[in-house]
Amino acid sequence: METFDELYYTKPYLREFDGKVVSCDAADGGFAIVLDQTAFYPTGGGQPGDRGTLCVGAGDDSLVAHVREAVPGNDAGEVIHLADVALPVGANVHGSLDWTWRRDNMEAHTGEHIVSGIVHALFGYNNVGFHMGERCIEVDFDGVLTPDDVLDVERRANAAIREDVCVEALLPSPTELAAMDYRSKKDHDGQIRVVRIDGVDSCACCGTHVSSTGEVGLIKILRMTTKKKRTRLELLCGRRALVACEEAMDALRETSNFLTVADEEVPEAVRRLSGEKDDLKHQLKQASRKQIDQYVAGLVPDGTLAMCCLPGLDVEDLRYLCERVLEVTGATVCAALSPVDGDATRLAYVIASSGEDLRPACKELNSRLGGRGGGKPQMVQGSWAAARDAAEAAVREVLG
């Protein structure tokens, strides 16, 4: 149970502190260190634990332990610092937080409250789970949002940031709590901590937050997915959102320079290029089919088996080749091969028959030639890890 009088609650902007080592035990390939007080927030409530260093002594004689994560201990208010170096019990220690990490998480957690509060107010949907990862936040709601809904939520969230309203962490009495309207994912025992954002949200929460919405800076919803009447939003807040916008602008600028168009003309230029690409692909496909027709017209099968090998054909072309061979020539089985584009060690294959079930032969050829693939009784396809001569010899032995 949280006591809410820990340094990371009472002084959430504290970057450095002093304490004393209470215990240090081997754990998880490192050491589990407990202090008499700490500003390291322990993993919980969807928020990752803090990182940083614990230092004993000074100068050349100092001993520094790097904390990869702070996690809750067994007792109320106890925090375990998972570190790479053991520290002596009873030693005075100076702790330093990885402030960029902590600040990112404070901005992210506050931003999540803003978004969740707005969604709840507009649509009545509840936040039924969220995860703060290394980069973005995933938030799940128990209802379906449309893309227009999400855009509206994002705009309202950033408007709340511009308003720069107060973010408070309250510890109401049971009587005060009973009179409050607040969100909560589950029932809690003992003291409830409510994070209230003026005019935006009130929610039971044990995380760390910035003191006003303006400190979040920016909220950007990256994507939304819907499944089983639920919606998941992936969002960035604060510095991380700014970095993502900078990266997106860099990518846009690079693309506009490559296309020699203005930034705002990039979408239309890309659509135009995509259309031209589709036209060229169609022309190439027509030329390929013409080449295949010319090849088939001069083909003389070896009995009932026609063996064909042409470079630069994809699986669709190979199927067309087989179909044309069975239509035009007297062959009843056609094996069409082509080197796999980008992998000279493999051959793509399609084998077609006018009546024979090819699946047993396909299985045997795959086994012999290090292949994979399959298909329907009269047409199978895949690839083999074999040279052309070996593949053709095996086909003739199995199907000839």
Rank of each mutant, 00 (worst) to 15 (best):
M1K: 10
E6M: 05
Y8G: 07
Y9C: 04
T10H: 02
T10C: 02
L14Q: 15
D18E: 15
G19H: 01
K20L: 01
K20W: 00
S23T: 14
D36S: 04
Q37P: 00
A39G: 10
P42N: 09
G46D: 01
Q47F: 05
D50I: 02
R51A: 07
G52F: 14
C55D: 00
C55S: 03
G57M: 07
D61V: 01
A65M: 02
A65I: 02
G73N: 05
N74H: 08
N74P: 01
G77E: 04
V79S: 07
H81C: 01
L82T: 00
A83Y: 03
P88C: 05
L97V: 15
W99C: 08
N105F: 12
H113Q: 11
H113D: 14
V119Q: 08
N127Y: 04
G129H: 04
H131I: 04
M132I: 06
G133D: 03
E138G: 10
D142T: 11
V144S: 10
L151T: 11
D152M: 15
N158H: 13
N158F: 09
A159H: 13
A160H: 03
R162E: 00
E163G: 08
C166Y: 03
V167S: 05
V167K: 07
E168P: 01
A169H: 05
E176C: 09
A179M: 10
A179F: 02
R183K: 12
H188T: 12
G190S: 13
Q191R: 15
I192Y: 01
V194I: 15
D198H: 15
G199A: 11
C203E: 11
A204E: 01
C206T: 07
G207A: 15
V210T: 11
K220I: 05
T226Q: 14
T226K: 13
K227A: 01
K228H: 14
R230T: 11
T231A: 06
L233I: 03
G238P: 12
R239G: 03
V243Q: 11
C245P: 00
C245D: 10
C245M: 12
C245R: 13
E246H: 12
D250S: 09
A251V: 05
L252Y: 10
T255F: 00
S256E: 06
N257S: 13
F258H: 13
V266F: 08
P267D: 06
E268F: 01
V270M: 13
E276P: 01
K285W: 00
Y295T: 11
A297L: 11
P301T: 07
M307E: 07
C308Q: 05
C308I: 06
C309E: 14
C309T: 13
P311V: 06
L313A: 11
D314E: 09
E316I: 06
R319Y: 02
C322K: 11
R324Y: 00
R324C: 03
L326H: 05
E327V: 04
V328R: 08
A331F: 08
V333T: 15
L337W: 10
G342M: 03
D343N: 15
D343Q: 10
T345P: 00
L347E: 11
A348E: 03
Y349R: 06
V350Y: 13
I351T: 14
A352W: 06
L358P: 09
K363H: 12
S367M: 10
R368I: 15
G370V: 09
G375V: 12
P377Y: 05
Q378F: 07
Q381I: 07
Q381N: 11
S383L: 02
R388S: 05
A393V: 04
E397G: 00
